[in-house]
Design a protein around this nucleic acid. Sequence first.
DNA 1: AGCTTGACTCGAACGTCGTTCGTCTATAGA
DNA 2: TCTATAGACGAACGACGTTCGAGTCAAGCT
Lengths: 239, 239
Amino acid sequence: MNPRERRAARHRPPDPEGEPAPRPRRTAPITVDQVVDSALGLVAAEGYEALTMRRLAGALDTGPASLYAHVVNKADLDELLIGRLCAELVLPEPDPAAWREQVRGVCDQLRDQYLRYPGISRAGLAMVPTDLEIVRVSEGMLAILLGGGVAPQDAAWAVDALLLYVAAYCLETAIARQRSTDDDAAWVLDRDELRRRFTALPAATFPHTTRHAAELTAGEGHDRFDFTVGLMVDGLAHG
Amino acid sequence: MNPRERRAARHRPPDPEGEPAPRPRRTAPITVDQVVDSALGLVAAEGYEALTMRRLAGALDTGPASLYAHVVNKADLDELLIGRLCAELVLPEPDPAAWREQVRGVCDQLRDQYLRYPGISRAGLAMVPTDLEIVRVSEGMLAILLGGGVAPQDAAWAVDALLLYVAAYCLETAIARQRSTDDDAAWVLDRDELRRRFTALPAATFPHTTRHAAELTAGEGHDRFDFTVGLMVDGLAHG
DNA sequence: AGCTTGACTCGAACGTCGTTCGTCTATAGA
DNA sequence: TCTATAGACGAACGACGTTCGAGTCAAGCT
């Protein structure tokens, strides 16, 4: 089957009759799932930038051309990865009394999933409203917000804003982590170093940055993430 | 001079004695400013993905190797571009009575600047706390927030969150615009098409998405942007 | 049973990318 | 005038995404 047809078939509602058994082959044929699995493994181990058609093909003991029988593009592969990633999120049944916690829970799940595969959120940014599995997540968040009494227009835009922020946050931290590993200890921008840098700035032109260097560099773990998501959620509540 | 030294010199406080006149050459030598100018022109005309060392060199009537006398890396070039871009922002004197409008104004400026050079926010995402010119913008926003009475910790994190969101928003819209141009009318995801897609989804599994397709696809211009920034700013005010 | 069809594999290649090396030129300082 | 050096640049390297075309096999038809 042509990979373009395959891609189209993926977006069609699933055929009611079960798939007619995975056709056996002498040398076991490569499947799309195998490709996605290997790709995710590669990203988890070495980051998204290491996900190359050539390296992926190598992980499957074949050449790069073989992949194009199962995947249209690298963009198509990205879409598959994000789809798989979103499919693993569990969306709670909306509880009007706990909608804030539920929204934050979904965001946390998505954040953790993105960070498990460092840098993959770059692909997620590119297709926020496109992929079907993302629509599923979007639907789940929308349900929670609407259940919580948020006005439909606010809820719709908030879902978009939250998904965008989560992807951006994860992309930023992935870049920061990568810099601290591959660059030879020259980019060591851990918090202490960054804070020292801020305080070393000329206080005349950067008075607030130097004075509040502590606050600017504060935040263990995902405190900054929690703060921002909380800001948006609380804003929705007061709206 | 070695380009690494040049880069280091850029991050040092400017030499009090003025530069000793741009040394003349027979064939006028390339300067860093020329490189940045050409690069920005290229990005403005054809988008960030068209910014290639080779194409940039071509625009300067030379080969790619010549650029490396003035720039360490493509990453270094990105840093220069973002710096130039941020340097053009005008930061208002903090007015405690109008801090919300002032913050939004700075965000709008940054948004417009990013969108003038489509896709360049990808580079901006990678160095939110790094570059000196970004620190200048950060300082300006911090001053406005502190002047408005926002608690220092909230202000510091909010600056970070806002800069991140603005960059992500601009990156997303740049990708969307590019898709609508270079793909041959197959990716026509204008709002009507997107809305039609949402309503065509199976209502059983996506009840809210189909019912509120109008809200999900609503928003002229930067309404979505204004909504999200307003959400964060109002959240700060109520905190 | 033989043949056709079509999905799949894969070696080889194309064009592009960022970057480096070595060489050359022409100026600045002695 | 001589020399040291900053800068320009042709050529090349390795890696990237992608395409082409020949080959290989299983399934379906006659």
